[in-house]
């Protein structure tokens, strides 16, 4: 399945279309979600895993993964953490405010390829945002998949993203959700420990599973080691990579990762495509 290509409204692919903020809500102390309507209420089809370039008037532009429901193209949903000039300015957006949107860009998680198999979704920290569209898709098309497992790790209980939804998913009998945090105060009743510890006993068949992993590189790196130990081959593991991006169309050169441009060959890669470079420092 080819992921959707950007909305073409301008002669130059570097020109954004305008979007209007419908809603902003806080997910954690430093993470918030924006719902955006593209100018004229145009539908915005995307595939799980794709990202947009969001532009704030005069401030700048940043790549942010799409974290909404791919079956509902009427609005765009982005979850981001305040980490830089642009995202800090974005937190001040109110309903009705305007921003620029370019996208959707990049490759998608292999939700079609995973049909008929077990699926394990493994997310760390804000890495759950680019995977949430996958979870929406899996839930909506539950019968197409065998077992579904969601493993999620966060630094502390306060840092858990989409806590309410995680609760709803784990209440379902046909989905296994395991959440763990690195450290917790006593009132936390869930798992404590790194996410890799959830993998050995998670209920999936290593021979017939598709793993989709997203989080900081170091988290993905240890997660893949544990998946390998469990017997999951690199060809059945998919990761989402991050590098600096300026153009998102493969022309500016910033997001290079060896032979790949993260913006157009990624961000989602089958692990064997990046395996050789994965643990090379500063690459």
């Amino acid at each position: 399945m080819q992921p959707p290509t950007p909305l073409q409204t301008a002669a130059h692919p570097m020109t954004p279309v305008s979007g209007r903020v419908l809603r902003r809500r806080w997910e954690t102390d430093d993470t918030f979600t924006l719902d955006i309507e593209v100018a004229g209420g145009r539908p915005f089809p995307f595939a799980p895993g794709q990202f947009n370039m969001l532009y704030l008037f005069g401030v700048g532009e940043v790549p942010i993964s799409i974290s909404g429901d791919p079956d509902d193209p009427s609005k765009l949903t982005h979850t981001t953490r305040e980490v830089g000039v642009v995202t800090r300015a974005m937190r001040r957006l109110r309903p009705g405010d305007t921003l620029g949107v370019r996208g959707p860009f990049g490759s998608a998680w292999p939700v079609s390829e995973a049909e008929g198999r077990d699926v394990v979704v493994i997310a760390g920290g804000i890495g759950l945002a680019p995977l949430r569209p996958v979870v929406y898709h899996l839930m909506r098309h539950r019968l197409r998949y065998n077992r579904i497992v969601i493993l999620y790790g966060a630094r502390s209980p306060e840092d858990i993203l989409y806590a309410k939804e995680l609760g709803q998913w784990s209440a379902r009998l046909d989905v296994e959700v395991l959440v763990t945090v690195d450290r917790a105060a006593r009132r936390w009743r869930g798992n404590v420990g790194v996410i890799t510890r959830l993998i050995p006993r998670a209920p999936f068949d290593p021979e017939n599973v598709v793993a989709m992993v997203c989080g900081p590189e170091i988290m993905m790196s240890f997660t893949v080691l544990e998946l390998h130990r469990r017997g999951v081959a690199s060809e059945r593991i998919h990761v989402s990579m991050e590098r600096n991006m300026k153009c998102a169309i493969g022309l500016c050169g910033h997001c290079q990762y060896g032979p790949h441009f993260i913006c157009k060959d990624g961000p989602v890669f089958r692990f064997d495509a990046v395996e050789d470079l994965f643990r090379v420092r500063e690459f």
Binding site: G153, R155, D159, D182, R183, V194, T196, R197, G215, P216
Partner: peptide
Amino acid sequence: ERLMATRIQMADLYQ
């Protein structure tokens, strides 16, 4: 395994 898990935890994985 426990030592490895502890080391990974030290890396502040989700930063």
